[in-house]
Amino acid sequence: MREPVAIEIAELRKTYDSMDALRGLNLQVPTGSIFGFLGRNGAGKTTTIKVLMGMTRPTSGAARVFGLACDAQDSSVSIRRRTGFVGEDKELYDYMTVEEIIRFTATFYRRWRPDLETRYLKSFELPPHVKTKALSRGARTKLALLLALCRSADLLVLDEPTAGLDPAVTEEVLQVLVSHVAGEEMTVFFSSHQIAEVDQIADRIAIIDRGQTLVAGALDDLRENYRRIQLVFGGDAPHATFQSRGAGRVRRKGRVLTVLSSAGSDAILEEARRLQPVSVDVMPVTLKEIFLESVAVED
């Protein structure tokens, strides 16, 4: 039976010595979604993933995958049995060949897919008898992806899967991911600070910064709801704040005042008209702008 929510995180906190890596993170990843987990370097993405995979224990709060607690040893093993993982470092066993590490990994998964193994070995052009330490970073990423995809996993957790790859390999990896997910019933949770790739393949996103969720939701909804409202005045723009729901950062530069709204533009427009601007423009916002605005608000 498939759970409606693949990942559920509530008030998750993780403190290393005196440093707070996660500060009450909240997140829900619906089953079947391709979920982009965006954040700057050091935002807490890798720590969150490590908690989900049972590699790190949370200081407080709850993290559940398939309804199972991530910090309990037995349920963590059950989670990992149903989860494919590609770590940020892409480190495999240097002393094994490609073929050896595939055989090694396959023994842990009853639903291992030899058909996918053959397909990806061929399409990724991975040399079976070469030691993994001799592979390029791109080839190692592809091998790590093969090892994750052939598990018949219900969930794929990828930590910066394309970090350090050239654009051609990045595109190849993303295409494989998208086509694989299209053919299999699975949830993908991947972290990145590459906005373009999240925009390209994700249907839901969360933006986190300093261990907290700033924005989360379906990408289409975010694109629909986020608007930049630009007001131009006859003289210098007034110092103004907006009280409407969704009103974000206000920027004032000369005669121009811009405000970002996360809840459409109607309410803010009504407020803005009271300021008597010469002109009002409502513009759509890209994911990059949403990200930069969200992260900048925290600054």
Binding site: M53, G54, M55, V77, S78, R80, R81, T83, F85, G87, E88, D89, E91, L92, Y93, T105, F108, Y109, A144, L147
Partner: peptide, 8 residues
């Protein structure tokens, strides 16, 4: 991390 991701 690869080892820790295995179901063991």
């Amino acid at each position: 991390l690869f080892t820790l991701s295995l179901p063991i």
